[in-house]
Design a protein around this nucleic acid. Structure first.
Lengths: 179, 179
DNA sequence: CCCTATTTTGAGCTTTCATTCTAATTTGAG
DNA sequence: CTCAAATTAGAATGAAAGCTCAAAATAGGG
């Protein structure tokens, strides 16, 4: 992976794996299918990844990291966070779907993935909680619970959006802010 | 499947498949594993199900149907519906987990499952919406949106409970009722 | 008790999976 | 241009998948 060709191939493999995971879940992401989509042969795959699992876990880790809104200043509002999430799901539906698939089915299988998802979730709740405290200091004592509910609702919405392409995530998220 | 033995074997197969789906997702539910857990051999499996897919889809359909709270009278309250869902997830975690796994990964693969999940979701939102209208007639014009948010939050909570055994679903659901 | 329909057995078939290996090709620093 | 290192090709491996089938065992209405 020190030559340019290798680096390009690696990223083509990850793109292919991400797309297959998104479209058909773990069972669709076979080495053969990944290679076919990436336009390579198995030998190249195993020159860059020591196993199929390593490639899939790389995609998963990247997807989890990508769900986090880009680091804003300490002045980020609740609306900022919600909008960032909506924008992410709408502009990167493939990655968002991979995240959801793994959060459920992959998280069950692999303990390290489960830990990673939970850690990520906790960090997200904390950011929402801080933003909620700034927004409504009167309700500061229940900021954590409210943040947890908000994140749960957003996750539920994202799951729904994954199944129903007609679902208007932005609209529902906006209504969420008025509750 | 007209003899008692066949009926009993069929239900042992479905139990085995349900457990495997819950513990390890679709990839763990192989015909061999199902047969081993059910204490039978492949020949018996294919005497009762024409394919592995048929058995898995049967489990999935049952799981989707089971998520629906038992039919209450027309006087069901929001608290009733929420509590019924919480009780279901806590007493039937295996079925609840199967539902979530399929709602994400299976729903993506199989269009008929996706339709079924969406139809079920819509019916659930309607029940919540009616209950919300009775509870707060002043907010009747936004009952649908609020019901959608409630169901999304509950789904998000259930997903989290699947990953984190320490998560107190009942407590969070109760707090949800006070928002 | 008998006889037919049902169920179970268990070996084995075909396909597909992840993975490996060697030889050929390509890359790019010196 | 050269040559070692990196990458690719492509056939081949063994394991495990879903599934089939003919024969043996069993169930249960008559």
């Amino acid at each position: 992976m020190t030559y340019r060709a290798g680096i390009a191939t690696r990223s083509r493999i990850l793109d292919a794996a991400r797309g297959l995971l998104s479209e058909g879940g773990l069972e669709a992401a076979t080495v053969k299918a990944i290679c076919a989509r990436a336009g390579i042969l198995p030998g190249s795959f195993y020159n860059l990844f020591k196993s199929k699992e390593e490639a899939v876990l790389t995609v998963v880790r990247d997807a989890i990291a990508a769900v986090e809104p880009v680091a804003a200043g300490p002045e980020e509002t609740v609306a900022d966070l919600v909008n960032a999430f909506v924008r992410f799901v709408n502009t990167e539906p493939v990655i968002a779907r991979v995240y959801l698939i793994i959060a459920v089915s992959g998280g069950v299988t692999d303990p390290s993935i489960r830990r990673r998802v939970l850690r990520h979730h906790q960090a997200r709740v904390e950011r929402f909680s801080n933003a909620l405290t700034c927004l409504q200091p009167r309700l500061a004592h229940r900021a954590d619970e409210r943040a947890e509910a908000l994140v749960a609702a957003l996750t539920g919405y994202a799951l729904h959006a994954t199944l129903d392409s007609d679902f208007d995530l932005a609209k529902h998220a906006e209504e969420l802010l008025q509750l």
